[in-house]
Design a protein around this nucleic acid. Structure first.
Lengths: 206, 206
DNA sequence: ATTATCTATAGATCTATAGATAATGC
DNA sequence: ATTATCTATAGATCTATAGATAATGC
């Protein structure tokens, strides 16, 4: 038969969907096999256990999430402009992966094993980000461009408001019976508002 | 025997702990019975099914969460002062129930039945809040005390930052190996910062 | 007669594997 | 000889209930 590579890949993709949809506990290996269009035994042939299959998917998702915290630096913008761009870029990332943060946060809260996989990756990403933003920020403060603030606090605020937008959005959609268009409008509005909040936090006041 | 009322109450309290700890899916009726110190059959005698038992706990939690969104009005403060107090009060509520928002948000994301229980309650609370804050806000805008902003956006920002503080906190604790004291410091700092962010969003700028 | 409790177990659901079979590459 | 696949089923785990028994109130 020798269609091996293909089957393995099909299972992995199906697992990704199933795990993201339902989380580890509610996801069923039988359903993953069904989604992949292969027999259930194949899943265990290639990945041995549900846990090992999940781990592979989970590591990939954690890496993706961690990377989104690390900013890119292109040229020399004014600090306020850079923060606005970073906040917007992070927002767009979460918009493209709206389930990702809740998925990772929920799995690490329920299972020590997944926590141990996730935390070191997150720590490295966070530390790198804190360090690089810190130097930008302190120079901007020295130049008198912005008001002093702890880097960590600035980052938490950005991340919190962006992530929560996509936790709240489906709730609002259901509560008010929004259409997809209403939802898009809400998201666009929140993007602007989140950036506005961050900029106002940094601007010097009278 | 006739210790009836007591047993029922013991089961309910044990269920509350178990469900809050593990969520509906991972919670086991056998473990709830164990926690309550009664035989497993008792649980089904009093509540019939795991779902019905959960529903009772869940309704209570949803009501609690919904109430926290509705502000109280004491006397006539300046609007900025009122917003700062409301944000602080909401923060303190979430601090006293740190698992509550994630618990409710997660359950409604996984089960339509729980969603249908939760959403109407949330809608009523939210609508009442939006209406009452709206009138305060518009008057403050007219008096020139604050910059214009959509009430909904203001509320989402407050709720988002407060809730996320207690989602992020345990992650930070694990990532950096914080002590309980470190954690308390972080929480205190975030409380101040969240209020600061909201106030700066509202203050007029040069 | 009703309410509360216990023991034992049925029934459902999932994960995982054993064992047979077919295809492939050397 | 090895790799990939299938069918069938063992084994574990949980929810739920049947059926017996004991206590209580009228």
């Amino acid at each position: 038969m020798r269609k091996g590579d293909n089957t393995e890949h099909l299972i992995l993709k199906a697992a990704e969907e199933e795990f993201m949809d339902k989380g580890f506990v509610l996801a069923k290996t039988t359903d993953i096999a069904r989604r992949a269009g292969v027999t259930h035994a194949m899943l265990h042939y290639y990945f041995r256990t549900k846990e090992k299959l999940f781990e592979q998917v989970f590591r990939e998702k954690v890496t993706l999430l961690a990377r989104s915290l690390v900013p890119t630096f292109d040229g020399e913008k004014p600090f306020l402009q850079w923060v606005a761009d970073f906040t917007g870029a992070h927002f767009d990332f979460v918009a493209a992966h709206p389930q990702l943060p809740s998925f990772v946060l929920h799995e690490i809260s329920q299972n020590e094993c997944w926590r141990n996989i996730c935390l070191p990756v997150m720590r490295d990403a966070l530390q790198a980000t804190v360090r690089s933003v810190e130097s930008l920020l302190s120079r901007a403060v020295e130049r008198g461009e912005v008001t002093p603030v702890r880097v960590e606090n600035l980052l938490y605020s950005i991340i919190s408001m962006n992530i929560m937008t996509f936790v709240i959005a489906p709730v609002m959609k259901a509560v008010y019976g929004w259409t997809e268009e209403d939802l898009r409008l809400f998201v666009r509005q929140r993007r602007k508002e989140n950036i506005e909040m961050i900029i106002r936090r940094l601007k010097k006041q009278a």
